[in-house]
Design a binder for these strands. Structure first.
Length: 427
RNA sequence: GCGGCUAUGGUGAAGUGGUUAACACACCGGAUUGUGGCUCCGGCAUGCAUGGGUUCAAAUCCCAUUAGUCGCCCCA
């Protein structure tokens, strides 16, 4: 009989670790409300077609990374590999575009699923936190989304960050550029590495940031997307940059920045960590504009922009920078009892204290008094209440402050009020 | 999906063919019949990821599988 292991690429987040998640998630939620984004919750699975149409049929995600299954009603469903498609679907289905408050500013957080070879910072089930702003093509909203993303990391204390920015232009600029790249590299095809040869057919822009062929002469003369932007796209990109400048947010332009999902156009960005120990994975989050996606999903022409970050990688980045989150692990009160009679009474006292809003625990392992104190110590208990046969007979209970070691005897009937008073000033 | 490395208790980690698998931390018990953080003593591996194989003999060698990790691919 062999025991079970969780499926490959999944992880359990245990007590001790989960507090970090809670802290980060709540910090991100607060931040979103500050930027006036509201939470939306969508299902973890959708019709497969939504992702094929939204994310793009030719992308790696759709081609080889989706958890797709047929349900008992013979529908093809897929565990969501990303969040934007679902949010856009919901935006259309619930006709949120008809709401008087536009643009629609939403955030979400939850597990995503991608069938990939697991690695540190790359799980098959991972948690993405993301933001979407639908219904505005004001460059200021692009800047807002980017600002929110940077703000999230800075707020948690990260400093080794790099914001990389690019414009992919509109669909026409993009396809003209693609065409130019293929024509440019075709004559050198045989001299490029194997990967690049296949990239030339699937995603020619990727050839530009190949590590092996970086020094090849054709790289220096390759056409840049920025030269293929039409006037409108160029002006838009300039406006986004100008707003970021005014905000004092530093960025780096990388004309080779490509995003792996088909729906992106115009503004594209990634935030990376420069911290040491990050190995191959340096991207903390990514996002961009996706004008046209809403139509693709069956809604009215609506521009949109968003980004998503991985909580796993955020936590990794915090660790890499040696940042410890202010998480306190404490117990307000622990009740020690001696003897059967006292233990029963202790159980009742614990219940009363809890009803009064006090955090309390007791022993359930039949431990000796010394061991109960040890447990209380380990749990970081501020107060220990001691109830033995003597106290029980006298209608009293001892209250010990574990930090000062001081102890006083209190009437059993007033213990709840006494503890409420004791703990009131506690930070 | 491809390639490299790894896999011993709750944790870290010795052992690299030969009878009972070091050591440390943690945990449990005792010294101390009702009071924690120190000290001392004692206890603590369904037997070395799983399944095969080689051998008189395997945690130690071989193969497969599974998992982790690193790189590629790609991405959050």
């Amino acid at each position: 009989m062999s025991s079970f292991k969780g499926p490959r690429g999944t992880q359990d987040i245990l007590p001790g670790e989960v507090e970090k998640w809670q802290y980060v998630e709540s910090a991100l939620t607060d931040l979103c409300y500050r930027y006036n984004y509201k939470e939306i919750r969508t299902p973890v699975f959708e019709h497969t077609e939504l992702f094929q149409r939204g994310v793009g049929d030719s992308t790696d995600i759709v081609q080889k990374e989706m958890y797709t299954f047929t349900d008992r009603g013979d529908r093809s469903l897929t565990l969501r590999p990303e969040g934007t498609a679902s949010v856009v679907r919901s935006f259309v289905q619930n006709k949120i575009y008809g709401s008087p408050n536009q643009p629609t500013k939403l955030f979400y957080s939850g597990p995503m699923f991608r069938y990939e070879r697991p690695q540190q910072g790359r799980m098959r089930q991972f948690v993405q936190f993301g933001v979407e702003a639908l219904g505005s093509d004001d460059p200021a909203i692009d800047a807002e989304v980017i600002a929110l993303a940077m703000n999230a990391y800075k707020e948690l204390g990260l400093s080794s960050l790099k914001l990389v920015l690019n414009s992919l232009g509109d669909k026409k600029s993009r396809s003209r550029h693609r065409q130019a790249l293929v024509e440019h590299f075709q004559p050198y095809k045989e001299e490029l590495c194997e990967d690049c040869q296949s990239r030339l057919a699937t995603n020619p822009m990727r050839v530009l940031d190949c590590k092996k062929d970086r020094e090849h002469e054709s790289m220096h003369t390759a056409p840049s997307i920025l030269d293929y932007l039409n006037d409108e796209s160029r002006a838009y990109f300039e406006a986004v940059k100008s707003i970021l400048d005014r905000m004092g947010i530093e960025y780096e332009i990388d004309p080779n920045l490509v995003r792996g999902l088909d729906y992106y156009n115009h503004t594209a960005f990634e935030i990376m960590s420069n911290a040491k120990g990050f190995g191959a994975i340096t991207t903390l989050s990514g996002g961009g504009r996706y004008n046209g996606l809403v139509e693709e999903v069956g809604g009215p022409a609506t521009p949109g922009i968003g980004f998503a970050l991985s909580i796993e990688r955020l936590l990794m980045a915090l660790e890499a920078e040696g940042i410890t989150l202010p998480i306190e692990d404490k117990l307000e009160c622990y009740v020690v009892s001696l003897g059967e009679e006292a233990e029963q009474e202790a159980a009742a006292i614990v219940y009363q204290l809890r009803q009064a809003g006090i955090q309390v625990d007791k022993d359930y392992a039949g431990k000796k008094m010394k061991a109960q104190f040890k447990a209380a110590d380990r749990l970081n208990a501020h107060y220990v209440l001691v109830l033995g046969e003597d106290e029980l007979t006298n209608g009293q209970i001892n209250v010990k402050n574990m930090e000062t070691g001081e102890q006083e005897t209190i009437a059993l009937s007033t213990i709840v009020e006494h503890m409420k008073r004791e703990l009131k000033g506690d930070a």
